[in-house]
């Protein structure tokens, strides 16, 4: 579903991604972890070209990801993305947030779009919030609405860029539950997160990044029980003891 080959990226002098090779199969859930500044968010944003790649190749469903223009917009329509800071459209109701892209990009009628939207809002458990403005919702509710908004496009892949990092602790669970359910339903997912519990529960594979490189890649049990590199061991020691 996603194939990344020889991806490099620089921010000025800073080499943030080094020779990344990654393959995500249909229906697979890949969780990317690593210390902050390791390049994991940048990798996630490169996958739908919110960040431009320096060099290398990104294929989505076998097709090279376009660099710009309408083709790129079409690619993004098939790749859902959930942001750390939710990024719900502040001037639209929750329902309108979910309906906008299906109507403008997919050309759905208002009635069709609304039906899908209400179904999805029910699925993420916030059906009764449909008419409210984003600012009136809690962080957890906003993030669930953002997931519904991405799902409304019926994406082939979902990218999650630290979806729970901006949430109060008591709201992390409700968002992760939605994501676990989504994984169980067979969605192809790339999840950048600090939630080791989620990685254990839902991931097919864990990718550990440090200093712009993929350092280790393994099934969750193998990775968490017996990491093979020192860097992974020291990272896990830090995050798991707290």
């Amino acid at each position: 579903m996603i194939r990344v080959q020889g991806l490099n990226k620089w921010f000025g002098e800073h080499h943030v991604l080094r020779d990344i090779d990654l393959h995500v199969a249909q229906g697979e859930v890949v969780v990317v972890i690593g210390p902050s500044g390791s390049g994991k968010s940048t990798l996630c944003r490169c996958l739908n070209r919110l960040e431009s790649a320096g060099s290398g190749e990104i294929l989505i469903d076998g097709v090279p990801a376009p660099v710009e223009g309408r083709e790129l917009a079409r690619l993004r329509a098939d790749v859902g993305m959930v942001f750390q800071s939710f990024n719900l459209f502040q001037h639209k109701t929750v329902l309108d947030n979910v309906m906008l892209a299906p109507m403008k990009v997919r050309g759905l009628s208002r009635a069709e779009a609304e039906k899908t939207a209400r179904d999805l809002l029910a699925r993420v458990g916030i059906a009764e919030q449909a008419g409210k403005m984003p600012g009136q919702l809690s962080g957890g509710q906003q993030q669930r609405a953002a997931i519904a908004r991405a799902l409304a496009m019926r994406p082939k892949v979902m990218l999650f860029d630290e979806p729970t990092s901006a949430l109060d602790p008591e709201m992390v669970g409700e968002v992760l539950d939605v994501m676990v359910q989504l994984a169980a339903d067979g969605m192809t997912m790339v999840v950048v997160t600090h939630e080791m519990g989620f990685a254990r529960r839902a991931a097919d594979r864990v990718v550990f990044m440090d200093d712009g490189q993929i350092v280790e890649m393994a099934e969750p049990n193998a990775f968490f029980e017996s990491p093979t590199t020192d860097r992974a061991r020291s990272f896990l020691a830090k995050v798991l003891t707290h």
């Binding site: 739908n48 917009a73 993305m81 990024n87 459209f89 906008l100 403008k104 990009v105 991405a150």
Partner: peptide, 27 residues
């Protein structure tokens, strides 16, 4: 307007013009 608003719109597949018209400019 927060840069995330335009990013979210583009991530959904809206073109630059559409994201300007439906998301960024109204705000």
């Amino acid at each position: 307007v927060a840069s995330g608003q335009g990013e979210a719109a583009r991530a959904l597949g809206l073109t630059f013009g559409q994201s300007l018209r439906h998301v960024v400019l109204p705000q």
